[in-house]
């Protein structure tokens, strides 16, 4: 105490006091800052949370800083929409190394996926999670959507959206029971082998038409009876050979049997 008191007239004391005063004022202002500043803080919090989650769950393959490794591609510029699609459909984190990540039960809730999306989006801008106005397919024209689907999508996904094989073990997945939002995001971001159909290629309205077409196809069902997976001649031929020929063989046996 005495040491402090004896130096209270020291030339440096004024400067020190001034510094202390400024520090306290600044600190108090920061603590009592008005609302907008708080909101900005929360967003950067989300990015921070996303970064933490990324480092824990994704960085093994995609690398620290998401620039990619031999195991996984760089995520710079893929955008929050790609994250939402890959994690929302359970494709990422990948259960094990393989030629293609299959659809799975999502391992993260929407909030965490949004946080990781915000982090990836903060690295380099990419397509954001689209507006719900287009992703529901509401008001889309199923007829026009069918034309667009048959030109752009059906060669891989099959005209009924049942999916199909690609080269060397890869495949185009079935589009049945896929949330419309994820169909939209897949077109927007081009996950895995799928090419990108950006908004200049297929406008948001055109994408809504495609979703409306798939919805209508699904709701219409199969008035002709069993669809057999909508796979065409392979499954139909299999049923015809096994059951059709089986019945014919049975009938021939019955006809040839002696006695009544």
């Amino acid at each position: 105490m005495n040491a402090l008191a004896s130096r209270r007239r020291h030339p440096a004391a004024i400067a020190l006091l001034l510094l202390l005063g400024l520090f306290v004022t600044g600190g108090a202002y920061a603590a009592l800052a008005p609302k907008p500043a708080v909101a900005a803080e929360a967003s950067s919090d989300q990015i921070q949370q996303g970064k933490q989650l990324f480092l824990q769950n994704c960085a093994t393959c995609h690398g620290i800083g998401a620039l990619g490794t031999d195991e996984g591609p760089s995520l710079a510029g893929v955008g929050a929409a790609a994250v939402d699609f890959q994690m929302g459909t359970g494709r990422m984190p990948m259960a094990g190394p393989g030629i293609q990540a299959p659809r799975n039960v999502p391992s993260f809730d929407a909030e965490k996926i949004a946080a990781i999306g915000a982090y990836i989006q903060s690295l380099a801008p990419g397509p954001a999670v689209p507006d719900a106005k287009y992703t529901s397919g509401e008001g889309g024209d199923p007829g026009k959507g069918g034309m667009i689907f048959r030109t752009n999508c059906s060669m891989c996904h099959n005209s009924a959206g049942a999916g199909g094989a690609l080269t060397r073990g890869k495949y185009a997945p079935s589009l049945h029971n896929v949330d419309a939002k994820y169909i939209y995001e897949a077109m927007l971001t081009g996950p895995q082998s799928m090419p990108v159909f950006n908004d200049m290629n297929l406008s948001p309205e055109a994408k809504a038409d495609v979703i409306a077409y798939l919805k209508t196809m699904h709701e219409e069902g199969n008035p002709g009876g069993m669809a057999l997976g909508s796979l065409g001649p392979v499954s139909e031929g299999l049923v015809a050979w096994i059951f059709g020929l089986g019945i014919l063989i049975g009938a021939a046996y019955w006809l040839g049997q002696k006695g009544a």
């Binding site: 667009i148 030109t151 752009n152 081009g190 090419p195 990108v196 159909f197 200049m200 290629n201």
Partner: peptide
């Protein structure tokens, strides 16, 4: 132009990984 909508295509709009019919 795009099939079936008939919209002319700007080179700048074709991003890497895109496919246009």
């Amino acid at each position: 132009v795009t099939d079936p909508e008939g919209i002319p295509i700007k080179a700048a709009d074709v991003t890497i990984g895109s496919v246009y019919h």
